[in-house]
Amino acid sequence: MSGIALSRLAQERKAWRKDHPFGFVAVPTKNPDGTMNLMNWECAIPGKKGTPWEGGLFKLRMLFKDDYPSSPPKCKFEPPLFHPNVYPSGTVCLSILEEDKDWRPAITIKQILLGIQELLNEPNIQDPAQAEAYTIYCQNRVEYEKRVRAQAKKFAPS
C-alpha cells in the first residue's frame, strides 16, 4: 500500500471527524483483525431537504486505489439507486470521479460526498449510466419523482 495514499486518507479521516456536513457519514471499514482499512470507507449521503430525495439516507462505498490521490476513489451505492447517473452496479457516474475528466488530487472526501448529493437531485442527462431511470427522467418527470420519493422512504434511517 502506498504511504502517500494512507497518509492522505488519515488526514481526510481526521478532517472529517473534526468537521463534516450534518447527516453525512464517512467511516473507514475494519479489517478482520480489527485494524482500520483506510482504503475502503462506508459512507452515507442524506437526501437534500426540499427535494424528492429528502428523508432518505443512501449508503455508498468509497474504494481507494494505491495511487490515490492521483486517481479518484470508486464510489458505489449499496444497494444501487434508481438514478440516471448511477450504473446498474451502483457505481456513480460523475465527472469529478473520473481521472480523465474533472478529478483533481486536491478534491476531498467531503467535496465528493457533497457533489454526489447535488447530483442526486440534478442528474447530468449528457452522461446517462442507467437506461430506465434516464428514460423516465426525460419522458415523465412526475413518475420519476414518485419513484425517487418511494426510494427515499425505503432508505429512511430507522
Rank of each mutant, 00 (worst) to 15 (best):
M1H: 06
M1N: 06
G3A: 04
L6C: 11
S7E: 09
R8C: 09
Q11C: 14
Q11D: 12
R13A: 02
R13G: 00
A15F: 12
A15C: 13
W16Q: 04
R17Q: 03
K18F: 06
D19S: 04
D19M: 08
H20R: 08
H20Q: 00
H20S: 01
H20N: 00
P21I: 01
P21Q: 00
F24E: 07
T29R: 14
T29H: 12
K30N: 06
K30E: 07
N31D: 05
P32R: 15
D33H: 00
G34E: 09
T35R: 02
T35L: 02
M36P: 02
N37E: 14
N37W: 09
N37I: 09
M39C: 09
E42G: 11
C43M: 09
A44V: 08
A44G: 14
I45E: 02
P46A: 09
P46H: 07
K48Q: 09
K48Y: 02
K49G: 14
K49I: 10
T51W: 02
T51Y: 04
W53F: 05
E54T: 10
E54D: 06
L57E: 12
L57V: 08
L57K: 09
K59A: 09
R61V: 10
R61Q: 12
M62L: 08
L63P: 01
K65N: 15
D66K: 09
D66P: 12
D66G: 11
D66S: 10
D67H: 15
Y68Q: 00
P69E: 01
S70T: 12
S70Y: 12
S71P: 06
S71T: 10
S71A: 15
P72W: 03
P72L: 01
K74H: 15
C75K: 00
K76T: 15
F77P: 01
F77M: 04
E78W: 11
E78M: 14
E78A: 11
E78H: 13
P79V: 14
L81C: 05
L81Y: 02
F82A: 03
F82K: 00
H83W: 03
H83V: 03
P84V: 15
N85M: 10
N85E: 06
N85S: 10
V86H: 09
V86C: 09
Y87V: 07
P88C: 02
G90D: 05
T91D: 06
T91F: 14
V92S: 08
V92C: 08
S95K: 04
E99D: 15
K101V: 13
K101S: 13
W103D: 01
R104A: 10
R104N: 01
R104S: 10
R104I: 01
I109G: 05
K110Y: 05
Q111E: 12
I112P: 02
L113P: 04
L114A: 13
G115H: 00
G115F: 01
G115I: 00
G115Q: 02
I116Q: 06
Q117N: 10
Q117A: 14
E118L: 11
E118Y: 11
E118K: 10
L119E: 05
L120S: 03
N121Q: 13
E122T: 14
P123I: 04
N124S: 06
I125C: 11
Q126V: 14
P128D: 04
P128W: 04
A129E: 01
E132A: 10
A133H: 04
A133S: 11
Y134Q: 05
T135V: 15
I136L: 10
Y137P: 00
Q139P: 06
R141W: 07
R141G: 07
R141F: 12
V142R: 14
E143I: 08
Y144M: 00
K146G: 12
R147S: 13
A150K: 13
Q151E: 04
F155C: 11
A156L: 06
A156G: 08
P157T: 11
S158E: 06
S158Y: 02
